[in-house]
Design a protein around this nucleic acid. Structure first.
Length: 604
RNA sequence: UGCCCGAUGGUGUAACGGUAGCACAGCAGACUCUGAAUCUGUUUGUCAUGGUUCAAAUCCAUGUCGGGCAGCCA
């Protein structure tokens, strides 16, 4: 392979977190960089998670490290395997062809190993990188689960109790809140170690009902940082867990589980969003209180993604799903990864977007145009061009012989000559787009108009002679004459005609359902000034039409992207049937082409 | 209210004491058998006030504005 003509290498991303990691790498602070992506399986992943995935896996990828996929599943009442499955699928999709070599998993069912060293006990669970580990194929691998560490976390909790750094508290949830708000010590704070140990063990055995007691860290009740005011480490929850079943009735809190899960997996850089910034002292306190033998992970925070014309929180997305305002988590209008994927966006486009928006600590709102640009740029390079008419109007070429059919050559992708050409049939009766004809044309309209000429892409220049209307005045047909010498490559082919429009031969056209998606909301900030986001749902976010398509589209494939020329990019929906005898084509409009004419037309 | 964090064109980001740059959006033009793509040009910015310095977007102080936290959620 020649290196002379190499593709431009994208500059390595740079941001404050990567700068820190780069310093650590240069200073050889860690043998290997190890990050993690830790979603809670209580909903589907969205584009905000995509930003986090691109950051965490991107760092692992750029610095030769590993990023563990970990289910952060410490709350049995909210989590479900449905979400575990969707998360796994979405992560694999986004990583494919990029950082899949840096994905850290573990053998199915494996839990941390206990390492005894110099009289010290240590818990460690090593990552297996499927594409880098020789025998990985012989093992069944799965994501890490925080719930796989419940035994070890319990052990750590007991250690804290024994050190006098944690105690069992009998305050009710309401009392605990009140005491914490008022920086007041719990009356159970100085309970003896032996009693704490006994009580904690009995909590584990299930002797107490939910909320009756809790395990609390003994830190500083009057700390200005509320997360240091003796935070809860364990709560009682008599509930089955999607991954550990009925084994436990006490569950660790996020703060306790997360830092120790990071430690157990040997994470070096634990990257999370800004709202956890105030938790960092607690993250460090727990780890430092346990005299752990291996290097401790450190937490770094960045701003989560906010995107215009959408909502991002799982709660609100779930609301849209539950109230049937969309067809499901993977509705192509949803900002979920599965919705975006179904819409036809490629992982490359999503990654380019994540790269373009950068990483900072500033909470801003990213313009959707940035996403749309990344999608168009990607699709422009890869999409196969096809002719299809979404809103047809019949055209009859009065001087073209009845029954005659020509096969015309059409270019599959002007951006990529290797994509080749195809034949499209031409005949006397055609469909063109309703928007491409105006009986009373606005200024600068260079499409078809009465007495006007337009080029049919790959075919002839035609002139509109007559507009046929029905009794109600609706246009039903345009009668035109073709300049029979003007066919592409013909005698008068070079004639200058301002407009070129797309068309399909009526007799040869095939039908396809096209789902025309638009933004889900009419406002860039659906919740601005406290308004209900559902009050600004876009009533036109989905329009379904039956399009007239050129016949080659009968061979459409789900993994291929199409551009219906002059209109938009489309991808086959999973609801399509490709069975030869029961074929049903459904296309999702991924995104429209840029339309400067629409902007121009609006001026008048 | 307390604590924490942030502030660079319309939006998002770079500049790490030494020429304020990039992307998107916008505008204007070229090209065009996609009003796409491509190409060219271009409008617009360091929150405020002091201080340190030869020199401040950058360091310091104060203020303003914005965000976060104060679940037995994560």
């Amino acid at each position: 392979m020649s290196l002379d003509n190499k593709a431009p290498v994208a500059p390595a991303p740079s941001d404050f977190i990567r700068d820190i990691v780069a310093q650590h790498v240069a200073g050889k602070k860690y043998p290997q960089i190890h990050t993690r992506f830790p979603p809670e399986p209580n909903g589907y992943l969205h584009i905000g998670h995509a930003k986090s995935i691109c950051l965490n896996f991107g760092i692992a990828h750029e610095f030769g490290g590993i990023c563990n996929l970990r289910m952060d599943d410490t709350n049995p009442t909210k989590e479900d395997v449905e979400y575990v499955d969707s998360i796994t699928e979405d992560v694999n999709w986004l990583l494919s062809g990029w950082a899949d070599r840096n994905l850290g998993l573990k053998p199915k069912g494996k839990t941390p190993e206990t390492i005894a060293e110099e009289g010290k006990r240590d818990f460690y669970l090593e990552a297996v990188v499927p594409l880098q580990t020789p025998d990985a194929k012989s093992q069944t691998l799965e994501a890490f689960y925080a719930s796989d560490y419940f035994d070890q976390l319990y052990d750590y909790a007991e250690q804290l109790v024994e050190k006098g750094k944690a105690y069992v508290c009998d305050l009710t949830p309401e009392e605990t809140d009140e005491y914490r708000r008022n920086a007041k010590e719990s009356p159970y704070r100085s309970r003896p170690v032996a009693e704490n140990l006994d009580l904690f063990q009995r909590m584990k055995k299930g002797e107490f009902p939910d909320g009756k007691r809790s395990l609390r860290a003994k830190i500083q009740v009057d700390s200005p940082n509320v997360w240091l005011r003796d935070p809860l480490l364990y709560r009682i929850r008599h509930a089955d867990h999607h991954h550990t079943g009925g084994k436990w009735c006490i569950y660790p809190m996020y703060d306790f589980a997360h830092c120790l899960s990071d430690y157990i997996e040997g994470i070096t850089h634990s990257i999370c969003t800004l709202e956890f910034e105030v938790h960092r002292p607690l993250y460090d306190w727990i780890l430092e209180s346990l005299n752990l033998p291996r290097p401790l992970p450190h937490q770094y925070e960045f701003a989560r993604l906010s995107l215009g014309y959408t909502v991002m929180s799982k709660r609100k997305l779930m609301q849209l799903v539950n109230e049937k305002l969309v067809s499901g988590w993977n509705d192509p209008r949803m900002p979920t990864i599965s919705g975006i994927r179904r819409r036809g966006v490629t992982p490359e486009a999503l990654r380019a977007f994540a790269y373009n928006i950068g990483i900072t600590k500033y909470n801003g709102i990213t313009d959707v145009a940035v996403l749309e640009h990344a999608i168009r740029e990607d699709l422009n390079k890869r999409a196969l061009r096809r002719l299809a008419v979404l809103h047809p109007i019949k055209v009859v070429l009065t001087n073209y012989p009845e029954g005659k059919t020509e096969e015309l050559d059409a270019i599959n992708n002007p951006e990529n000559p290797d994509a080749g050409t195809r034949k499209i049939p031409f005949s006397r009766e055609l469909y063109i787009e309703q928007d491409d004809f105006k009986e009373v044309p606005p200024p600068k309209f260079f499409r078809l108009k009465p007495g006007g000429e337009v080029r049919l892409k790959y075919a002839y220049i035609i002139k509109c002679d007559e507009v046929v209307k029905d009794a109600s005045g609706k246009i039903v047909e345009l009668r035109c004459t073709a300049d029979l010498d003007s066919k592409s490559g013909g005698a008068t082919a070079a004639r200058k005609v301002k407009g070129t429009i797309h068309w399909v031969s009526a007799a040869h056209a095939i039908d396809a359902e096209c789902r025309l998606y638009d933004r889900l909301f009419t406002e860039a900030e659906p919740e601005k000034d406290g308004r209900d986001f559902k009050s600004v749902l876009n009533p036109h976010s989905l329009e379904v039409v039956t399009a007239k398509c050129e016949p080659s589209l009968k061979d459409a494939r789900p993994e291929v992207r199409y551009q219906f020329e002059r209109l938009a990019y489309f991808a086959l929906d999973k609801d399509s049937s490709l069975a030869p005898n029961a074929s049903r084509l459904i296309f999702n409009r991924t995104i429209t082409l840029r339309d400067t004419w629409a902007k121009e037309a609006q001026k008048h």
